[in-house]
Simulated scan of single mutants.
Amino acid sequence: MSTTRTSVPVLDLSTARNADGTFNAAFIDTLRDAAHNVGFFQVTNYGAADGQVQELLETLAGFFRLPLEQRLELDNRTSAQFRGYTRLGTEITRGRADSREQIDFGPDREPLAEVPADQPFLRLQGRNQWPAGYPELERVALQWAELMSGIGADLLAGIAVALGQPEDYFAEPFAQTPAWMGKLVHYVGGQVPEAGTQGVGSHADYGFVTLLLQDLIGGLEVQPHGQTEWIPVEPIPGALVVNLGEMLEVATDGYLMATIHRVTAPPPGVDRYSVPFFWSPRLDAVIETVPLPAELAAEARGVSDDPENPMLSSYGANVLKGWVRAHPQTAAIHYPSLGA
Rank of each mutant, 00 (worst) to 15 (best):
D98V: 05
D104R: 02
Y85N: 07
R17I: 08
Y335R: 00
R77K: 15
G84M: 01
W144Y: 14
N18Q: 13
E138F: 00
L292C: 11
F40R: 01
V209C: 07
D284T: 04
L13E: 07
G182K: 03
R77I: 11
L137G: 02
G84F: 03
P224F: 11
A19C: 12
T289Q: 13
A298G: 10
Q129A: 12
T330L: 04
V38C: 13
T210Q: 09
L124M: 08
E136T: 11
D154T: 07
S149N: 13
Q119K: 12
L147H: 15
V275K: 01
A326H: 06
L11W: 01
D12Q: 06
A265N: 03
K321T: 12
W279F: 13
M181I: 12
A141V: 07
M148N: 05
P116A: 00
R65D: 15
A35R: 00
W144I: 03
P193Y: 14
A34F: 07
Q129R: 10
E69N: 15
G95V: 04
H327I: 07
N45I: 12
P310R: 08
A97L: 04
Q198D: 10
S280G: 13
R272M: 05
W130H: 04
L156D: 06
F40V: 14
T3N: 11
G182T: 09
L163A: 06
H203F: 09
P67N: 08
E229P: 08
H36M: 14
G201C: 10
P166S: 15
A141K: 01
G207C: 07
S337H: 05
G133M: 02
V270I: 15
L312T: 09
L244W: 03
R123A: 12
I92S: 09
T259W: 03
Q214F: 02
F121L: 00
D108T: 03
R272K: 04
N309P: 08
